[in-house]
Amino acid sequence: MIEVNIYNAAFLLFSMITLLSAIGVAVINSLMRSLFLLIISFIGVASLFVLLSADFIAIAQLLIYAGSISILLLFAVMLTPEVSINNQNSKYFLFAALTGILFTYIMFLFISIFDINQLTGLSLDKLNFSNTIDKIGTLLLGKYIIAFELASILLLFALIGAISIVRSNESDFNIVATKIKGKK
C-alpha cells in the first residue's frame, strides 16, 4: 500500500499528467496537438525525475527533450502540411496496438519487481544523496572519459556534416543569379 504523503500525492499527479498526455499523443488526429501533448509529457517525466531527487537528469530532460527535441519535431511536422491538421487513421493500427500491448506487458513485468515505496525521493534522502551534479561531473570527466569524448566527437561530426550539407557553394549562387536574370 502506498503511504499518504506529499511525495506520493505529487507522484500520482505528475504520473497522471505524463500518462494522459502520452495517451493523447497516440490518439489525437492533429499532429500539432499531439506534439503539444508530447511536450507536456516530457515535462511530466522531468517532474518525475525531480521527485526521485535526480536534479541534473530532470533539468537535462527539460533542456534536451522539452526544449530542443520538440523543436526538431516541430520542424519535421512542418514538412508534412497535408497530415499535420487532419491525420487519417493508419492501416497499421492492429500491429501498433499489438506492439504497444507487448511493450506495456514487458514494462509491467519490470516494474512489478520493485516496491514503489523504495523508489521515492524520501528513500534517497535517507541515503544523504542530495547533490548529483558534482558526482556526474567527476564521473564523466574521470571514469567515463572515453565515452564522453567519443560522444562529443560524434556531435562534432554531426555539426560539421550539417554545415557541409547546408553550406552553399559559389556556383549555386551563380545558377540562381542567372535564373533570376533570365526571368527578367
Binding site: M32, F36, I39, I43, D55, F56, I59, A60, L62, L63, A66, G67, S68, S70, I71, L74, S130, N131, T132, I133, D134
Partner: peptide, 26 residues
C-alpha cells in the same frame, strides 16, 4: 536553493520557444 540553478533557469526559459511556435502556427 538548488544545485543546478543556472541550468534550471536556462532549461525553463528554453520552454518559451515551442510556446511561441504554437502561437504562430495556430
Amino acid at each position: 536553493d538548488i544545485n543546478v540553478g543556472i541550468l534550471y533557469v536556462f532549461a525553463v526559459s528554453s520552454l518559451t520557444v515551442p510556446i511561441i511556435f504554437f502561437a504562430g502556427w495556430s
